[in-house]
Design a protein around this nucleic acid. Structure first.
Length: 881
RNA sequence: GCCCAGGUGGCGGAAUUGGUAGACGCGCAGGUUUCAGGUACCUGUGGCCGCAAGGUCGUGGAAGUUCGAGUCUUCUCCUGGGCACCA
């Protein structure tokens, strides 16, 4: 067995001589995998076109960012996709299975700065490396359809789409907040902000307002929410996450009149709440730090301005804001209660109120919201309970450390007293609307999608700014707007903005000097429509309508759970926007979704606490881990997602080199269900290799020779042959069902069971050689989608001229699936006391009688009267005493 | 902090969806073949008691529903993913 360089070993073992005398009895995967990859490629097996005669099936794996080399997550993702693609092909579908590159992005710019290489060069080099790596996996892609999003031939179409969106009112420009690094003079991604500081500059990040492009995803809020119900082949949890992300809530907007301490006139304050029933428990109002009222008050109040500046240091990420200590600043302004003319309450600026949600202002009801309660306790504000449990005494009910958020009856609320929460909401909403002090309102958490990035390596936004004409779209015939190749990425600021000439352009409308938009698109832009481009990747327009109409939607989309919300929601929005602009006819891009788990591995550290690669660690003679180089002790940490930062990575290339692609693929499919995390282990890959060589040996060097290819089925079979024959058909049925339901690990287990059973079948009983041929041909066909090279090799070895890739899935003889006998469990008081082998669908009374006379049953019953016997036919008999 | 998952032998996992817990694989132990083993094959393998037959406990923890709970309900602990400029 080949060595594996990254494997910790108990002892050092010399490398086996692969060309030695036992070559004949070993599977030479290197030769076989290269041979079959060449064959598939030469015969253009996986090139497809529209074919109205056959049902179509579009399998798509999330395309990779070309980061340099493929990692195990890719191997898992593409193994899953290839299994589905090959399986559906075998089942007669016309399968579209393309691959491409999500090629714009930040890492290319970072690499450019770090290694002085142009982002385009870096990206194309990486693509070449990764394409070659993927090809060694034997994936059934139609490589003719390969696309890279950084090619102008790709992004020119999205520039056109953007202009169409603009015309439809789906794109617009407004001010919005960003993380600003004052040293680099650039906007930072949330991941580039570490502890509130820029990752490279180390200086404190500021929130700053920039004019940015937005896509109006909120125009589809309701539709995106409602149509989740139709996505019945999506995981529930993803639909739930999207539902929560969209965050539809029914509440009310209401106005509070304001009183400034200096008597100045102030506009009334509009708040949004979903708990308008608790209005009589309101004891303060709070507004966002960037609320217009806050900004206005700050002009005359330096202390308040300082507090706002403090809030702005928090960064823009919701996690940062939510986990920060809740702080408030009393503005001195008082808000008048809308239903109690005499009552006023303080208006705070609070760092947990978000300008982007609702109206950027809330009223606080400490009795019935934990965050409000914490805030009230901190700033010494009143707590008035207005909802009490139905069985509580309204007069004495009070709130201590915990807000009461459950259902109950209204108290201390004048005309609402005694009502339930829902009735109180209705009553309040009615009164608000009657007096003009507010109205019912549906609110969404979902915000419009900001697509402007102040970066070089992205798609240019095709807009020109003219002093006379204002904002002017680039004319369609002038597309694409391409990137300059000579931008300076090392200087602070936006590279396109800094470029000496690129932005200077004649106004498309009046011809006078004007300036290009120097922002580029968010890279989610490209990945929001690539699935459709694959239908006609070389078309002159974005999509050949006949092609997208034939292939879309994607029947099965496969990728990481980390994309559950953003990428998938943006793609759903984009599809609707493209439909509105007449590009395509569908609104949901992905009919089926499979979200795979991560590939994890143990972590290792040396004595100094530095991370170690698995390669750098081995097991000493005492079983403890040591540094392979120094022999110093190493510690093993728990298993986490493989990542460069934890150094717990295993390089797929070395695995494929040592074990072959099929063995790596088998391991990816065995054991763990696709949607769960997978634990990489050296023992696991060894086990997969053992199966590979064992199956190869069993087929190429059978103990009992198989019947000839064309031998007709015998008139009768010996009992063991009959039993095996039934098992073959049962396995085909079960594996098919497992594959349909993405239970790939179970499918592998069942195939192994069948192989074990066939291994035990030998001798010269009637039908044995015939069943062995049926059995192994079936096994080879069943593993075809999982281990395509080995399967192709064995299929050829079994005497077939037609490629397995062109061979249909095995047929089932339904008659052989019918069981004659079943094993029924017998319990006494729910505890297993024995089993009975009974003819299937036996009479209940007979089964019960047989159960009651079992030795262990009579012993357990011990003469006590039988109170009841529960018989579940073909399953269980429970005797209750 | 908010949202979403997941906790089953030494390990990855299976359990016909409320009906025999531990399929299949890994690991481990004993054996056979072999000059040799990181090979191949055979046997065993959840804990505890027992020579055995068998008994008993057992699905993160606590309670509940049920003839019967890994599966349903409530509470609780732990681990992971996402949180809008990483992709």
């Amino acid at each position: 067995m080949p060595p594996i360089p990254s494997t910790p070993r108990v002892t050092e073992i010399p490398e086996l001589d692969k060309t030695g005398s036992d070559t004949k009895s070993r599977y030479n995967f290197k030769e076989a995998e290269a041979k079959w990859q060449a064959t598939w490629s030469d015969r253009r097996c996986f090139a497809v076109s529209e074919d109205e005669e056959r049902p179509k099936y579009y399998v798509l794996e999330m395309f990779p960012y070309p980061s340099g080399r493929i990692h195990m997550g890719h191997v898992r993702n593409y193994t899953l996709g290839d299994l589905v693609a090959r399986y559906k092909r075998a089942r007669g579908y016309n399968v579209l299975h393309p691959m491409g590159w999500d090629a714009f992005g930040l890492p290319a710019e970072n690499a450019a700065i770090a290694n002085n290489v142009h982002p385009a060069q870096w990206t194309h080099d990486n693509i070449a490396t990764m394409r070659a790596q993927l090809k060694t996996m034997g994936l059934s892609y139609d490589w003719d359809r390969e696309i890279a999003t950084c090619d102008a031939d790709y992004y020119r179409h999205e520039q056109k789409m953007f202009l169409d969106f603009l015309e439809q009112g789906l794109a617009y420009r407004r001010e919005s907040w960003v993380n600003w690094d004052p040293v680099e003079e650039t906007v930072l991604a949330n991941e580039q902000v570490i502890d509130g500081k820029g990752w490279r500059s180390g200086v404190e990040v500021e929130k700053r307002q920039l004019s940015q492009w937005f896509l109006r995803i909120t125009a589809f809020s309701d539709e995106l929410l409602a149509d989740l119900g139709e996505l019945d082949r999506w995981p529930d949890r993803v639909r739930l996450m999207q539902e929560n992300w969209i965050g539809r809530s029914e509440g009310a907007r209401m106005f509070f009149d304001l009183e400034a301490p200096d008597g100045a006139a102030l506009e009334r304050l509009e708040v949004y709440t979903t708990r308008h029933d608790t209005i009589f428990g309101a004891t303060f109002c709070a507004i966002a730090a960037n609320h217009p009222l806050a900004i206005g008050l700050a002009e005359k109040n330096p202390e308040l301005a300082a507090f706002i500046a403090e809030c702005n240091r928090l960064g823009t990420s919701e996690a940062a804001i939510e986990t920060a200590e809740k702080l408030g600043f009393d503005t001195g302004v008082r808000a008048r209660h809308p239903f109690m003319p005499g009552r006023t309450m303080p208006v705070f600026i609070a760092n947990f109120v978000l300008m982007d949600y609702g109206t950027g202002a809330i009223f606080g009801c400490p009795g019935h919201d934990q965050r409000d309660l914490d805030f009230a306790r901190k700033y010494g504000l009143d707590v008035i309970p207005v909802v009490a449990p139905a069985d509580a005494d309204a007069a004495t009910f009070s709130i201590a450390d915990e807000a009461f958020v459950d259902d109950g009856l209204m108290i201390n609320s004048e005309f609402l007293d005694g009502l339930g929460i829902e009735d109180a909401k209705t009553e309040i909403a009615g009164r608000l609307e009657a007096t003009g002090a507010g109205q019912r309102s549906i609110n969404y958490r979902l915000r419009d999608w900001g697509v402007s990035r102040q970066r070089y390596w992205g798609c240019p936004i095709p807009i020109v700014y003219c002093d006379d004409c204002g904002m002017v779209p680039v004319a369609a015939e002038d597309l694409p707007v391409t990137l300059p190749t000579d931008a300076d990425l090392d200087a602070p600021g936006n590279p396109l903005e800094n470029h000496p000439t690129w932005k200077n352009v004649a106004c498309p409308a009046c011809g006078r000097d004007a300036r290009r938009e120097t922002d580029t698109f968010d890279t989610f832009f490209e990945s929001s429509w690539y699935f459709a481009r694959f239908c006609s990747p070389r078309a002159d327009i974005a999509f050949d309508r006949a092609a997208v109409d034939y292939w879309l939607p994607v029947d099965q989309y496969i990728g990481g759970i980390e994309h559950a919300v953003l990428h998938l929601l943006y793609s759903r929005f984009f599809t609707r926007a493209m439909k509105q602009c007449g590009y395509i006819g569908i609104k949901e891009p992905f009919a089926g979704l499979l979200t795979q788990g991560m590939v994890c591995h143990e972590t290792y550290k040396d004595e100094g606490g530095e991370w170690l690669l698995p390669d750098e660690v081995r097991r000493g003679a005492d079983g403890k881990f040591v540094h392979a180089g120094t022999g110093r002790p190493a510690t093993v940490g728990r298993s986490v997602k493989m990542s460069k930062s934890h150094k717990n990575v295993v390089d797929p290339e070395s695995i494929i080199d040592a074990y072959g692609a099929d063995t790596a693929r088998l391991f990816m499919l065995s054991d763990s269900p696709p949607d769960r995390d997978l634990e990489w282990s050296d023992a696991g890959i060894d086990g997969a290799w053992r199966f590979t060589s064992r199956l190869w040996r069993m087929v190429t060097q059978p103990k009992t020779p198989f019947a000839a290819d064309d031998e007709p089925s015998p008139a009768s079979l010996a009992p063991e042959a009959e039993k095996a024959n039934r098992a073959i058909h049962r396995t085909v049925a079960a594996v098919s069902l497992d594959l349909d339901r993405f239970r790939f690990n179970k499918a592998v287990a069942r195939i192994r069971e069948l192989v074990n059973l066939l291994d035990e079948l030998d001798g010269d009983a009637i039908g044995v050689p015939w069943v062995l041929r049926q059995g192994f041909e079936t096994v080879v066909r069943l593993i075809g989608p999982m281990m395509p090279h080995l399967a192709e090799e064995l299929w050829s070895n079994l005497g077939h001229d037609i490629l397995l890739a062109d061979t249909p899935w095995p047929e089932i003889d339904e008659a052989l699936l019918v069981e004659e006998n079943v094993t029924v469990a017998v319990q006494v008081n729910g505890k297993l006391r024995g089993t009975l082998d009974l003819p299937k669908d036996s009479d209940n009374e007979a089964a019960q009688a047989a159960a009651l006379v079992l030795d262990n049953v009579t012993k357990a019953v011990a003469g006590k009267p039988v109170r009841k016997v529960i018989v579940v036919p073909n399953r269980i008999i429970n005797v209750v005493v």
